[in-house]
Amino acid sequence: MKKIKNSSLALCIASLMGVTFLHSNAFCAPRAQQAGVSAQTAVAVIVNGNAITNYDIQRRAAFLKLQRKTGNLTAQAKDELIEEMLKRVEMKKRNIDVSDDEVNKAFMGFAERNHMTVAQLTDMLGQAGVTADHFKNYIRVQMGWGRLVSARYRAEGGIISEQEAVQRMLKNGGVKPTANEYELQQVIFVVPSDRRNAILGKRKQDAELFRSKFSGCSNLKQQATTMLDVTVRNLGRVLEPQLPEEWEKAIKATPVGRMTPPQETARGVEAIAVCNIKKVSDDKVAQLVFTIQDNEKSGDKKAEDLSEKYVKELRSKARIENP
Rank of each mutant, 00 (worst) to 15 (best):
Phe110Ser: 10
Gln185Pro: 09
Met108Ile: 05
Trp247Asp: 15
Leu81Glu: 03
Thr260Val: 13
Glu84Gln: 00
Lys317Phe: 03
Leu81Phe: 01
Arg319Gln: 06
Ile199Cys: 01
Asp100Gly: 04
Glu156Arg: 08
Met169Gln: 12
Tyr310Trp: 12
Val274Asn: 14
Phe290Asp: 05
Gly268Met: 08
Arg258Thr: 12
Lys312Gly: 00
Lys69Met: 02
Phe110His: 14
Leu81Gly: 02
Lys65Phe: 04
Asn95Trp: 01
Val289Leu: 11
Gln205Asp: 12
Lys87Tyr: 03
Thr122Phe: 00
Gly257Ser: 10
Ala253Tyr: 07
Gln205Cys: 06
Gly158His: 11
Met108Cys: 14
Asp97Leu: 07
Arg203Cys: 02
Phe210Tyr: 08
Gly173Pro: 04
Gly18Phe: 03
Ala303Glu: 15
Leu73Cys: 02
Arg88Ala: 00
Cys12Lys: 07
Leu81Asp: 04
Lys302Thr: 11
Ala318Tyr: 04
Ala250Thr: 10
Val89Glu: 02
Val230Trp: 14
Val187His: 02
Gly18Gln: 09
Arg68Ile: 00
Gly144Glu: 02
Ala224His: 05
Met108Phe: 11
Gln186Lys: 14
Ser99Met: 10
Gln186Asp: 14
Gln242Ile: 11
Leu16Ile: 11
Leu64Met: 04
Glu264Thr: 13
Ser218Met: 11
Glu162Cys: 06
Pro262Val: 04
Leu11Trp: 03
Asp283Pro: 02
Phe214Leu: 07
Gln185Asp: 08
Glu183Ala: 09
Leu125Ala: 01
Glu80Trp: 06
Phe63Leu: 06
Leu209Gln: 14
Ile57Tyr: 04
Val130Pro: 05
Val274Lys: 05
Ala14Leu: 06
Ala266Thr: 13
Pro262Cys: 14
Pro241Gly: 09
Met116Trp: 11
Lys284Ile: 12
Glu102Lys: 12
Phe135Asp: 02
Ala271Phe: 10
Gln167Asp: 12
Tyr153Ala: 03
Lys252Glu: 12
Lys176Pro: 06
Ser316Arg: 05
Lys87Pro: 01
Ile199His: 01
Ala207Thr: 11
Thr265Val: 08
Arg60Asn: 01
Lys2Arg: 14
Val175Gln: 15
Lys65Gln: 09
Ala224Pro: 08
Ala165Trp: 10
Lys78Gly: 00
Asn50Asp: 01
Lys284Tyr: 13
Asn180Ser: 14
Gln67Cys: 10
Phe63Asp: 03
Met1Val: 09
Gly126Ala: 08
Val19Tyr: 01
Ile57Trp: 01
Asn197His: 07
